[in-house]
Design a protein around this nucleic acid. Structure first.
Length: 404
DNA sequence: AAGAGTTGCAACCGCCGGATC
DNA sequence: AGATCCGGCGGTTGCAACTCT
């Protein structure tokens, strides 16, 4: 049984808010303070508006001047809006000190730095930019900032490819990675992006409560080690690699052979499970149909969650997120990519499903032996230009940006 | 000038997790 | 313990404005 809707969809208005509706909502909140229950708000506003009607001389400065007709129409029945719509309108548009547009270079840097570090957690990013809303930042990123950065990076791609070949990858290995590049051919150069951002001053995260923000605090999101314990700066130095084994006793991750492309491939092998209703599940299945190249090993050749044939995306994200702490900033862009791919459920580029971890591990061992002369020969200084993609669709306007 | 294509952004949708019953 | 409610969130859509041909 599905959940009952929060409001009667048939009787609520949808679409753009009128000035009168804005004025009604704004006046009510200014009069009564923070809203405790948004769902009940429209009805309460109805009662409020009746009182306004009796004392219109006090309030008419607010909205009669703007559009008296709309006020007259709404006062008897409150706002014919869903409570959630009211909340959104208030948070994104009506609340005081909201800034729209005109992002500064400094704000660009902060947004980029945080996006690379934590992915598309717009509410967290917005909490670091007073006056900005998550919706605004999200739109800004999707429509402008991303294109701006990727445009810069596109020019560097050929250099990265040359550099990759210089590092002595065999033809076979290069070919496998080219295959990977083809998979992500619509993506951007996340490595370059990370490099670019890492050359910027580190984005700092203010952990103190922001009185102007209605967003969730950072600590609530458990950034888990991203923040240095005694500082509000993003952690700059990777922890000793041994720490990995402390945190993941079941995961034996050879420290020198878990490079960005390989790690991304782990994710690329996971496919969202289709549900009978045609929607996609938040759980993912594994396939070994790609050129799998995953030097991730577990005790007894098993991975506790993944080997069951499904992996919850949160488990995966948690694992990758934790791992990214130890490999430093250079991989953080791929982490962002991974997170983005997972959260958008955009892993459906492949075919079929399956789960043969033994094959994966076996082929990986073979591959590493063939091409690197053993696992430990894989350089931690990998700079292969693995081209990632956020994976999600960026609305109908987003597609062209990747192709230009 | 006009139609097609693109962009920007407000608003919506549906999912998730915490709180409460 | 399980059901339900609600706030919060990220992804997506609709559409007006703008640009291109």
């Amino acid at each position: 049984m599905g959940r009952a809707p929060c409001c009667d969809k048939a009787s609520v208005r949808k679409g753009p808010w009128s000035p009168g509706e804005d004025a009604t909502l704004k006046s009510y909140i200014e009069e009564h303070g923070p809203v405790g229950n948004w769902i009940a708000l429209p009805q309460k506003i109805g009662e409020f508006c009746k009182s306004i009607h009796m004392h219109v001389h006090v309030h008419n400065r607010v909205w009669f001047v703007v559009c008296g007709d709309v006020f007259q129409a709404s006062y008897s029945s409150g706002l014919k809006r869903c409570g959630k719509s009211c909340r959104l309108r208030w948070l994104n548009y009506l609340r005081p000190n909201i800034k729209h547009g005109g992002f500064s270079e400094e704000e660009d840097r902060i947004i980029c730095g945080l996006y690379i570090s934590i992915g598309s957690r717009w509410s967290i990013i917005a909490a670091q930019l007073p006056g900005r809303t998550d919706n605004d930042i999200k739109n800004y990123w999707n429509t402008k900032l991303k294109k701006k950065l990727l445009g810069k990076q596109r020019n560097k791609e050929c250099h990265v490819r040359k550099d990759r070949s210089k590092r002595g990858l065999t033809k076979a290995a290069a070919s496998r990675n080219e295959d990977f590049s083809v998979i992500w051919e619509t993506g951007g150069d996340w490595y370059g992006l990370a490099t670019e951002v890492n050359h910027m001053p580190p984005a700092s995260i203010d952990q103190s409560p922001n009185p102007n923000s209605h967003q969730t605090s950072l600590t609530e999101y458990q950034l888990r080690g991203r923040l240095a314990s005694n500082s509000n700066q993003l952690e700059q130095e990777p922890a000793p690699i041994e720490a990995d084994f402390l945190h993941y006793p079941n995961y034996m991750v050879p420290p020198n052979c878990y490079n960005p492309i390989e790690r991304s491939t782990v994710v690329s092998c996971l496919r969202p499970l289709g549900l009978s209703n045609g929607l996609m599940s938040t759980r993912y299945s594994l396939s070994n149909e790609d050129n799998i190249n995953i030097p991730v090993f577990a005790e007894n050749n098993t991975l506790p969650q993944i080997s069951t044939g499904e992996v919850d995306r949160r488990d995966l994200q948690s694992h990758l997120f934790e791992y990214s702490r130890y490999v430093g900033n250079i991989y953080s862009a791929h982490e962002a990519m991974d997170r983005s791919m997972c959260s958008s459920g955009a892993l459906s580029h492949g075919r079929g499903s399956g789960n043969v971890w033994e094959d994966i591990i076996s082929s990986t061992s073979q591959l590493l032996d063939e091409n690197y002369g053993g696992h430990e020969a894989v350089s931690s200084q990998w700079v292969g230009g693995g081209r990632g993609t956020g994976g999600s669709s960026f609305g109908k306007s987003g597609g062209g940006a990747w192709d230009t």
